[in-house]
């Protein structure tokens, strides 16, 4: 994981702005994401958390009319550089989505999908097992690998999606409110899993739930809508820092209002 880790930071964004159909959605984001730590993005609905997260693996490219300004430096390279292949970016930066979205294939094939499309040539059974173990799902599904992924419960489906993302052996896992569609027990499992995964991976998580951010993350970014121009709904970063500091000793009034529940 740290073979070319000349720096502690996996991502550094430099003046990142995203536009939808020419309309500014998030403005001038400057962030650092630290290797092997969990960074949380929090903020009110519609402040562009997911937009920023999706910029990290160029998923915004898939939305017609979306355009990006600024840089995201990953591995010393700007992922928005013309010579960068977005497909390669996405293979190295995995993503887990808000709602579990397993393919309607068997559990095995769900996990094996990424390696297969990327021409993986090792022992597939081993890889699938390892990823399912890493996702803490192996014990529950080892006897039914040939069953459809959609037959699992919501929490299991989300862990299957995590296993699927791990199977392409990414550097980073982006998680877009991974527990928002799950019940509290399943949420707890996912959170425990994230603690285990940060040994090997860097995780960026968007969450709606401040307690969750406080529980799982090492660093927290608080984003909000630009108050000077509320109708335009332009997202920006208000404060960035270690999680403990954001929640116990925020530097900005806006952050304090939000984390103490007075705004949002």
């Amino acid at each position: 994981m740290t073979t070319n880790g000349s720096t502690d930071y996996v991502f550094e964004t430099d003046g990142l702005s995203v536009y939808y159909d020419g309309k500014l959605a998030v403005d001038n984001i400057n962030l650092q994401v630290k290797r092997n730590h969990i960074t949380a993005l929090i903020g009110p609905s519609g402040c562009g958390k997911s937009t920023v997260l999706r910029s990290f693996n160029r998923m915004n490219d898939l939305i017609p009319g979306a355009s990006v300004e600024g840089k995201i430096i990953y591995d010393g390279r700007n992922i928005y550089d013309d010579s960068t292949d977005p497909v390669e970016v996405r293979r190295r930066i995995g993503m887990v989505f808000q709602k579990p979205n397993p393919f309607p294939k068997t559990i095995y094939e769900n996990v094996a999908f990424g390696p297969r499309i990327n021409g993986y040539q090792g022992n597939m059974d081993e890889l699938v097992e390892r990823c399912l173990r890493q996702a803490a799902l192996w014990d529950e599904v080892k006897d039914k690998l040939k069953e459809n992924g959609l037959a699992l419960s919501g929490g299991q489906q989300q862990r299957l999606c995590i296993a699927r993302a791990l199977a392409t052996q990414p550097d980073v896992l982006l998680m877009d409110e991974p527990a928002s569609a799950l019940d509290p027990i399943a949420t707890l499992r996912i959170e425990e899993l994230m603690h285990e995964l940060k040994e090997d991976y860097t995780i960026v998580i968007v969450t709606h739930n401040m307690q969750q951010a406080a529980r799982v993350s090492d660093y927290t970014t608080f984003m909000s809508i630009d108050r000077s121009n509320p109708d335009a709904r332009i997202g920006h970063v208000v404060e960035f820092g270690p999680t403990e500091q954001i929640f116990t000793n925020p530097q900005k009034k806006e952050t304090e209002d939000y984390v103490s529940g007075r705004f949002g």
């Binding site: 293979r91 993986y120 090792g122």
Partner: peptide, 23 residues
């Protein structure tokens, strides 16, 4: 990177470019 090799993108910058172009 992880310990299991992946054929595309794993073999240095030039190999990476070749596969990308072909793709």
């Amino acid at each position: 990177m992880a310990d299991v090799p992946i054929d595309s993108g794993g073999g240095g910058p030039l190999a990476f470019l070749r596969t990308q172009a072909a793709r």
